[in-house]
Amino acid sequence: MLSVLGMLFDGIAYGMLLFLMSVGLSVTLGMMNFVNLAHCSFAMLGGYVTVTLMNDAGWPFFATLPIAFVAAAAASVVLERVFFRRFYHAGELPQCLLTIGIVFVSIAAAAYIYGTDQQPVQLPDYLQGSLHLMGLDFAVYRLVLIAIALAITVLLVVTVEATRFGAKVRAAVNNQRMARGLGIDVDTLFAVTFALGSGLAGLGGALAIAMLGLDPSFALTYLIYVLIVVAVGGLGSIAGSFAAAMLLGVADLAGKYYIPAFGSILIYVVMLAMIMVRPTGLFGRR
């Protein structure tokens, strides 16, 4: 019984990670129908920024996180202005080709700059080990992860639900043409949202490396997981991505623990079942 709770805790922490890495993609896909397969490249960038600052410049772990966010957001703005914006109306096939090309370039660039090896990530002592509460072990890092992810979720929800900017974003996701008709500058709005989404991916990447490791293939390895979260959650839905990430995080871990022989299959089975029942995702409208 206790281990079920432990399992839930671990699964939720893993889910939070998936959520941070995928929420940006969900919103941008929902708003512009732009298929950005390079989303995890931004996560990878965040990871490398954190590793560099920690290992080479001796920064404390937490101080690197905002930089990871800013770096990924800045890189995404450049790419958005130079490449992506030309393809908003080009259909999904050219978008796939463009962003896969960017993934390839990012992988090669990372290998060239940082080498092909795993980056060592040594967390500070106070983030290691676990807390004993009510007879359960709670890993400190997972607690921190959940806290950060929850804080960001609240921030996101408040931004989207209660600010003027959020209202515009919601309008653009719901009906882009109508939003334009109302005088909302959807292009600029999208650029900002895109930067925020990529920044979150960068932050997610920075937080993920301590659990998932970091090497140049990161940009492709976790792309599938991110796509799954987005599809199951529903395009453009923060709540959907959150629920999907929790569900998949817990299902993945539970499956691997209770039926290890089929553990790797379970996440795909859950995804297929969810999408067959709700093709537009948990909270998707389209």
């Binding site: 490449f83 030309r86 080709l97 463009l98 090309g101 960017i102 390839f104 370039v105 992988i107 090669a108």
Partner: peptide, 20 residues
């Protein structure tokens, strides 16, 4: 080791100039 870079550039180049 780094041929992915060039193949990536090829894809980007093609899609920029020949979107179909």
């Amino acid at each position: 080791q780094f041929w992915y870079f060039w193949i990536g550039l090829l894809l980007i180049g093609v899609v920029m100039f020949l979107p179909n």
